[in-house]
Simulated assay, not measured.
Amino acid sequence: MNLQNLSKNKKLLVGLLFDACGYISFIFPPFDFVWAPASAWLMTKLYKGKKGKIAAAVSFIEEAVPFLDIIPTFTLMWLYTFVFSSEKKPKETIIDIN
Rank of each mutant, 00 (worst) to 15 (best):
P72W: 06
I54M: 15
L42N: 01
E63Q: 12
Y47F: 05
A55L: 13
L46F: 02
A57I: 15
S86I: 04
K51L: 15
L42Y: 01
T75L: 09
L79H: 08
V58L: 15
L42P: 01
K53T: 12
V65R: 07
E63D: 07
A64E: 03
S59V: 10
F60L: 15
I54R: 15
V83E: 10
S85V: 12
M77R: 02
T73I: 09
P37L: 09
T73R: 05
S39T: 10
F84G: 13
F84N: 13
W35A: 06
F82V: 12
A40E: 01
S39K: 08
L68N: 06
A57E: 12
I54L: 15
T75M: 06
F67T: 03
A57H: 10
W78N: 06
K53E: 09
T75P: 04
V34H: 00
L76R: 08
A38H: 08
L76Q: 10
V34W: 00
V83S: 09
W41D: 07
A64T: 06
F33P: 04
T44V: 04
L79S: 10
L42V: 05
F74P: 00
F67M: 01
D69S: 14
K53W: 09
T73P: 05
A40N: 01
S59E: 12
K50I: 08
W78R: 08
Y80R: 10
A55M: 11
F74S: 00
K51Q: 15
Y47K: 02
F82I: 14
W41P: 06
M77D: 01
T75D: 05
F33Y: 10
M77Q: 06
I70F: 14
F74E: 00
S85K: 11
S85C: 11
F67Y: 02
F33M: 07
L79A: 13
K48E: 11
F82S: 12
F60N: 12
Y47R: 02
W78H: 07
L42G: 02
I70A: 14
P37W: 08
K51W: 15
Y47P: 04
P37C: 10
Y80Q: 11
P37D: 07
E63L: 05
E87V: 10
M77L: 03
L46W: 00
E87Q: 11
L42D: 01
T44E: 02
P72T: 09
T44A: 02
K48Q: 08
P72N: 07
